[in-house]
Design a protein around this nucleic acid. Structure first.
Lengths: 139, 139
DNA sequence: TATTGTTATACTCTATAACTATA
DNA sequence: TATAGTTATAGAGTATAACAATA
């Protein structure tokens, strides 16, 4: 395998691929992608949040958020309301079905998480998250 | 941010994104993507390797390898030879320019690696790779 | 029958650039 | 002049399905 197994990038790629596939097979049963799931969580935690704020938090372009919200709104999980404070921006909220689905998704996500972290102890899991945060929290 | 910061998947995604962008800005100067780089390394380490073997090692579909090799062959970095052992398969080898470019790429990759791992100690770096391997080496 | 590579095709994810409405 | 969102478009990355040649 040459130098590949010693590179952070290669191992990150493999892990990301494996997790992504497992996510699709579990949480994805409900036809939700990881960016969509993250968006729903942010709206739940911050009712009335704007598209740009989500884009900033998830490190996406504004135009990418348009498409994510389009799909979620098309499925009646999210509504765009005109913000009373700034009429350029949209205040996003979960619908009833949005809340209901998100509850299911969170349960699926937890069992997905437990499943993929099955090979790790609790300490190792915390360590891993810590190291990953260090990796992307600067630069 | 809701439950996001506590999820392995979210942190893996952010780290992967950050590394991918850094890779593009450094190793990618030579118009080489991560899968192309991995492919070149595998061919160098295993002259005469087949497309399917690479696909297996990198966890890609066979049809994806066709396109990767197409691009590398189009740039005269790799050649497809008919395998003497199994005339269905292609024995892949680096060209002179392939070898030359790969030398440059390896240097770039090492400094890319040092750069992104700058926030980590040597121990932490080894730990991270170890934990990532555990994550994808089963299931 | 099974496997290697190929083709044609399509889908997802993401971004860029130009636009509008509002600030 | 700057910002929020939108549109149209494009590119990268990857996969599926059907096919030819070979095993």
């Amino acid at each position: 395998m040459g130098m590949l197994p010693g590179l952070i990038g290669f191992n990150l790629r493999c892990a990301h691929l494996a997790l992504f596939q497992h996510f699709s097979a579990t949480v994805g049963q409900e036809d939700i992608t990881a960016p969509q799931f993250g968006t729903l969580l942010l709206i739940e935690a911050n009712p009335g949040i704007s598209q740009s704020a989500i884009a900033g938090a998830l490190r996406f372009d504004r135009s990418t958020l348009v498409q994510i919200i389009d799909r979620l709104e098309g499925r009646d999980l999210v509504v765009r309301q005109v913000s009373p404070k700034d009429r350029r921006s949209h205040a996003l909220r979960l619908t009833e079905s949005g809340f209901a689905l998100l509850e299911q998704l969170k349960e699926l996500a937890i069992s997905h998480e437990d499943d993929v972290a099955g090979a790790l102890s609790t300490d190792e899991r915390d360590q891993l998250i810590d190291l990953l945060k260090k990796l992307y929290s600067r630069g």
